[in-house]
Design a protein around this nucleic acid. Structure first.
Length: 593
RNA sequence: GCGGGUGUAGCUCAAUGGUAGAGCGCUAGUCUUCCAAACUAGUUACGAGGGUUCGAUUCCCUUCACCCGCUCCA
């Protein structure tokens, strides 16, 4: 439930965002454009700092990750291979029972008796659920099976022992509203053309349709071989990218949280398949050993790597001022996982409007590289000399057991997708043959761990987290509320405000400008000589500037022992200290980097 | 996409069928020796389009944007 208070907070943040030039509505003078936002001067600095922090942490400070900057428009085949074209382009309905998705116009028309229910009562708790539901029963089938389906539907939504309410039977002819496989009602058809479409070249016809990328990840997969061949990295290694992505969301909402043009910071970290780890290391490290808290090891399989990256990402957020406690980790349940994922953790931030995803860290297996290998016809695998040698030394029993495990896993996956046991087993055997033939030669498709963060969401989280109000009451009993944005110095848009104590004393102004010129090449500064000093402090507090420097008469030598020192004021405490101008860079730089 | 609400200055709000005020902010000046001081001057608005009307910011319609709830978010 959105309490008025949280809504109020969001309104204050939106208002501050505009007032101080963090975030503006796109095209505001023309009435704005739903789902598009611009960053003003302070927002642009903040965003740049956040991206720089990510780029530095994830790429520059690591030996095992390299960068990429790919185009926004790519070959349309990429989106075929990734599955985006199919799932993103037509009106779709979902089965309310199995969540299976259908193209609305391709559902086989069904006729029979529709059993409509108005809801269900929980015979255990006594609670009632008033969601209508309907099941279509082909002529001649016993009504009991419709009720069974309906009970399953309500059970799925938390009614443990449902008693159906308001049953009403109605004849239906040629309806496309029901799942032909189980009779369950489908959701309303919804447009799924979530990709922005455009045309490459001057002629707008269907032969040159292209899409603005709905995620940055696919570019990394598509360029995987080029990067791997040129960057002198060996698996495990990662490719990181920051860039714009576009989704024609049905409902952009919550300020910049879900917008149609947004920016992602994504890492695709490529690792060896667990089978290769077993061949090379004899065993795959156990997650419960908590090794993932330390430095990467050669015997890490995908589960440890996955945990490792979750931990790394949390540490990143801590380093820019979002404490661990501000997050919830949500481990997606197996049935919630997207088709490509083996596991996925959402890092949720407690926004005023609800606890929502800031970053997803998915274990994508070798799904994407396999897809691109299939669709492009280009080999995406890598070759590992050590792996080939290690395989050669393996005894036959070990090889057989590796294969048996692989077949068992693939069979289980096949069954999950709805294949029959025989089909699944046959497919698994075929896959195993290909996989192990390659493995024996030291070849494999890397698997992937994908930490994928939304920049704009993060900006919003940082704004929410930094926002605070301080109310002071003066001697006259007049109270006043001031806003302070408590940004971590590393990401604060302006690092230091520089103020001559008085504006009408040329010596002070001159000295202040000298300090400004000293610091300016090294950090974002703001020089301000307008109004009283307190006002200038307050203005910088509201902008989130962590430090203020005041040049006063002591700086000029009024007290000789204080010559060439300035007041350093700390935003969060208001505390002041005296620092020599010569020491400023040495003091400030470590705090902002 | 559906339902409800809102839209007046940079921000927060007011008034009005006869074109609008305040507070804060912002700019300039005077002044000011460390936390939004004071004074003076200045600055800026009826989301857009159409209709009714002698006249619309006000009433009506459409549209756009934002907020809330549902929905959606592979």
């Amino acid at each position: 439930m959105a309490e008025p208070k949280t809504n109020e907070l969001m309104e204050k943040i939106v208002s501050l965002g505009k007032r101080r030039g963090f975030i503006f509505q796109s095209s505001e003078i023309y009435g704005g454009l739903n789902g598009f936002w611009d960053y003003g001067p302070l927002g642009a600095e903040l965003k740049r700092n956040v991206k720089d922090a990510w780029w530095s942490t994830m790429i520059r400070l690591r030996d095992d990750v390299v960068g990429l900057e790919a185009t926004i428009i790519m070959h349309p085949q990429i989106w075929k291979a990734s599955g985006h074209v199919d799932t993103f382009s037509d009106p779709m309905c979902d089965c309310l029972l199995t969540r299976k998705r259908f193209r609305a116009d391709q559902v086989d028309p069904q006729s029979g008796n529709a059993y409509n229910f108005t809801g269900a009562r929980d015979t255990v708790s006594g609670g009632e659920m008033n969601e209508p539901y309907s099941v279509l029963l082909p002529a001649g089938k016993p009504p009991e099976s419709a009720r069974k389906t309906a009970m399953a539907y309500y059970a799925l939504r938390g009614v443990t022992q449902p008693e159906l309410l308001g049953e009403r039977v109605e004849a239906v002819v040629d309806s496309q509203r029901y799942n032909p496989e189980n009779g369950s009602l489908l959701t309303e058809p919804r447009p799924f053309n979530l990709m922005f479409k455009t045309y490459v070249g001057p002629v707008a016809d269907e032969d040159n349709v292209a899409y603005l990328r709905p995620e940055t990840a696919q570019a990394i997969f598509a360029q995987f071989k080029n990067v791997a061949d040129t960057c002198r990295q060996k698996v495990p290694f990662g490719i990181g990218q920051i860039g714009k992505a576009f989704r024609n969301e049905v409902t952009p909402r919550n300020y910049i949280f879900r917008s149609r043009e947004f920016e992602q910071m994504e890492l695709e970290f490529f690792i060896k398949p667990d089978e290769a780890i077993e061949v090379l290391s004899g065993t795959v490290a156990n997650v419960s050993a908590e090794a993932w808290k330390g430095e990467p090891q050669a015997d890490w399989g995908w589960e440890v790597w996955h945990k490792y990256w979750v931990e790394q990402r949390v540490r990143f957020y801590e380093a820019i001022g979002l404490p661990r406690t501000a997050f919830e980790e949500y481990w997606q349940k197996p049935e919630e996982l997207a088709h490509y994922a083996r596991a996925c953790v959402d890092l949720l931030y407690k926004f005023p409007f609800g606890t929502q995803e800031l970053e997803g860290i998915a274990a994508r297996s070798d799904f994407d590289l396999t897809q691109h290998e299939t669709h492009s016809g280009k080999a995406m695998g890598v070759f590992d000399e050590e792996l080939r040698a290690a395989w050669g030394k393996l005894d036959e029993a070990r090889k057989a057991s590796l294969r048996a495990n692989y077949v068992a896993a693939k069979t289980a996956a096949g069954l999950k997708k709805g294949a029959t046991e025989a089909e699944a087993a046959k497919q698994a055997e075929a896959l195993a043959t290909i996989f192990f033939e390659k493995l024996a030669k030291g070849q494999y498709l890397p698997h992937v761990i994908e930490p994928s963060a939304g920049v704009d969401r993060l900006i919003l989280a940082l704004l929410c987290h930094a926002y605070s109000e301080v109310t002071t009451t003066d001697e006259k009993g007049k109270s006043e509320t001031r806003v302070i944005l408590r940004f971590h110095p590393r990401i604060a848009p302006i690092k230091v405000g520089i103020f001559p104590l008085l504006k009408n004393k040329p010596e002070l102004v001159k000295k202040a400008m000298a300090v400004r010129d000293l610091l300016r090449p090294h950090m974002a500064i703001y020089y301000d000589d307008g109004g009283a000093i307190g006002r200038r402090y307050a203005r910088q507090d509201e902008a989130g500037t962590p430090f203020g420097l005041t040049i006063d008469f002591d700086t000029l030598g009024e007290k000789p022992e204080l010559l060439d020192t300035v007041t350093l004021r700390h935003r969060d405490t208001g505390a002041q200290e005296r620092v020599a101008i010569a020491d400023l860079l040495g003091r400030l730089l470590p705090l902002i980097r």
